[in-house]
Design a protein around this nucleic acid. Structure first.
Lengths: 351, 351
DNA sequence: TGGGACTACTAAATGCATTGAGTAACTCGG
DNA sequence: CCGAGTTACTCAATGCATTTAGTAGTCCCA
């Protein structure tokens, strides 16, 4: 019964259009547009009436119509070229999403998410398609790899973008929202060195990723600057399997502490150490990275580096929206925090 | 230099339109549309030429233009009313996303993701906005709660939807892609009972969620049908804190095994048990749910229920796309699988 | 009282792909 | 060789919000 002119309700015959609002308010469509976009050219009285009718009809402009005019999609994209298992374990990503959404919600834009395999070509084609179909106005770049093709591709596509990765990372024309994971690793080394450790191993993630190499570099630098040896490291590829294997190899070098580039690898490493007959933290101190929800409830609870992914996400979204508007801002990234728990202790004297 | 008529490249002056293709091919826009949509009314010769030009120009129809005609958005929505911490730890969600995308990729639709707080009103408003702005053609419903308002709201909004939750869940007009977690819990009980356990406790998640109550019910039923007591249970709210607290309470009842509704709670529970001086699995067998990446690398490795979230996601996407087209399919949900590891063993005789 | 400057609007064009109606050229039967 | 029937197109309308150009009406001052 209720046609387009019907009362506001959740059951529209069809979503109301600006024409419906105009007819109801007894004005032209142009007047409605001017009134509701806060532009001059309508009297206060009329504006009030139009606003009221629009509210009553529960009207919102169709983004498709707006997109055609402005050639803006009012959406931003996030393409994940990740193994789904890996995505699952990454608490950074979820917090990041939350932060992004908190900013996007107030901007009228939504987030378009795409998950593709780890294949670089599929990934690039994904971005191309999103651009050609005019689905997004900008994109977030996560998991930047060494020589990442996207850093070339997106400027070529004229697609505004923000890269999220280790502070100081070079991304050419694309602005970077830095994650100070180097500082986190530095804090872990400082903490362990302060406890008296000298042989501190490091299990890095996957060397292809910038956020992996940057953590390795930070560890190396922190070690060398203290005159400690920086030879005890191995790649764990951010997986449990890899972390366990790397730990087995590192234990041959008799470390008194191991720093892991992720909590998952640290957890796997703890099991390996225990199976090798070591007491934790007496015989081996362990630190992780990410502060997974599990970390506080392990046995012993895991000392780890906690980032603020929500803040990073919000920051990245702000930078991207600014970028789309042709503005350029470069905010300070939040500092990571070392959470000291019971998995670290002074090295036992007998070793 | 290269205007809309320029050669294919990643650097368009502006994305090419159907008009550009038509001009280049020396035909009308209508002919291009007919040719590229496989409709009759153009000669094979012309169709070939048009296809070639379109390819050359790398043309794709603007979804906004198509959306205006068909009043279809070519996008589906997923609104998450979750605490970001909880989202992080949920390996089901990530796999689910992967499965959804694998189906969506071939359909021309994309996924719009929205993360809102756990507030029901914000959540509803989110869906309303997506519909009014005509951003989505359908939606996935996750984390169905008792008396969930969305089960009423979406039909009222005339928005096609699929609910993802425990098999057999009643969602009114909305089709359900069932997750057989009841079968998973049943398998865990069977496994433990087979090992000789009689006092098997259960730590449920958050009673407000259907996928929590359904697991509790499955446990209770499996226990009672074996003549075992079903009084030893408590809520852990899917968090580490909650799991630890629930475990402390349950241990007073002297269980020889505890089934947890999530791996995170199981991990926290294992720590609590160990601090209470119990040996695992000798004094207490433990099972989890989800098969987090950590599960296989704990000490001892965790026996747990593994779902196939990728399959569930793919299924849900297929059902939703069918729903949008007015078709209705009801596929069989994949069965969960009990992965037996070293955290379960026969109860020790001395207790 | 007539012309410039406002104010408050309306009408029409715009962007883009699709589609149904319309048209021109050609074929074939009678 | 005319008219019916195809074939292969073209043209114009459509959907929706925004914007620019245009049109009444009002006010003010010379």
């Amino acid at each position: 019964m209720d046609g387009p002119g019907g009362p506001a309700s959740d059951t529209p015959g069809n979503p109301p259009t600006i024409g419906d609002v105009a007819r109801r308010a007894g004005v032209s469509k142009g007047a409605v547009s001017l009134a509701l976009n806060g532009k001059p050219g309508v009297s206060e009285e009329t504006r009030r009436r139009i606003t009221e009718v629009a509210e009553q009809l529960n009207w919102r402009p169709s983004i498709h119509a707006r997109a055609m005019l402005r050639s803006r999609a009012f959406a931003v994209g996030l393409v994940l070229a990740r193994d789904t298992q890996h995505l699952a374990v990454d608490p950074f990503f979820a917090g990041f999403l939350g932060g992004v959404e908190s900013v996007l919600a107030g901007s009228g834009s939504v987030l378009v998410l795409q998950v593709v395999g780890e294949d670089a070509e599929t990934e690039a084609e994904s971005y191309r398609r999103l651009v050609r179909e005019r689905r997004i106005d900008g994109a977030f770049l996560l998991d930047i790899r060494e020589g990442d093709q996207r850093l070339d591709l997106l400027p070529r596509l004229r697609l505004p973008a923000v890269a999220v990765g280790p502070a100081g990372m070079d991304c050419g024309q694309i602005p970077v929202v830095g994650i100070r994971d180097g500082d986190g690793i530095g804090a872990a080394v400082e903490h362990l060195a302060g406890l008296g450790h000298r042989r501190i191993g490091f299990v890095e993630g996957a060397p292809a990723y910038r956020h992996s190499t940057s953590r390795l570099d930070a560890w190396r630098q922190a070690m060398l600057s203290r005159g400690l040896p920086a030879d005890l490291h191995d790649a764990g590829h951010f997986t449990g399997q890899g972390g366990a294997a790397a730990t087995r190899r590192l234990l041959d070098g008799r470390p008194t502490a191991i720093i892991y580039a992720s909590d998952l690898m640290a957890i796997a490493g703890m099991s390996v150490a225990r199976e090798a007959g070591l007491e934790l933290p007496g015989d081996l101190s362990v630190t992780g990275f990410d502060d997974n929800p599990e970390a506080a409830h392990l046995h012993p609870p895991l000392t780890t580096v906690k980032q603020d992914p929500v803040a990073v996400g919000a920051l990245a979204a702000e930078v991207l929206l600014a970028q789309i508007d042709g503005r350029h801002i470069t905010p300070e990234p939040p500092a990571p925090q070392l959470i000291v728990r019971a998995s670290t202790a002074p090295p036992s004297p007998r070793r």
